[in-house]
Amino acid sequence: MPIRVNDTEVPAPEDARVSLLDLLREHLHLTGTKKGCDQGACGACTVLLDGNRVLSCLTLAAQAEGREVRTIEGIAGAAGELHVLQRGFVEHDGLQCGYCTPGQICSAIAMAEELRRGDPSYVTPDIAAGPAAVTREEIRERMSGNLCRCGAHNGIVEAIEAMLAETAA
């Protein structure tokens, strides 16, 4: 079974040890997905697998067979126009070195869908009811799997708020 990466089918690698992350970066030269730790501790390698955010470093490429992978290269529009969240990151300076940025963006896009579904988080006051309001605390808890060392956290949260406001409007 092939893997669909940004709407293109690619074969799984022969060596079963190859991670989805290395498949993207070393085999397909889709280097927008970043390797930060290669051990599930930073979130830089976040991609969308069938729409859910996952860590591509701890996913063997073979595990993605028959599934749809969307990477940062597949986030902008068909004509190359930036996604609303990408625009927000630039506008609110939600980045400095830019290395954690693709992971933050993929993660936040999936997070918006989780919020829309009403999935709770550890800081949701009423776990049964789900998040009543999208507070900054909710966003921060849900984005805590994406480390940033330059310290762009405030700008990232502002960019996400802007996206949520724009898509809600």
Binding site: G32, T71, L82, Q86, F89, V90, E91, L95, I105
Partner: peptide, 12 residues
């Protein structure tokens, strides 16, 4: 805004 921002948010 930083001029390399668009490239960085695209992963480019």
């Amino acid at each position: 805004s930083r001029i390399d921002g668009p490239d960085k948010v695209r992963g480019a």
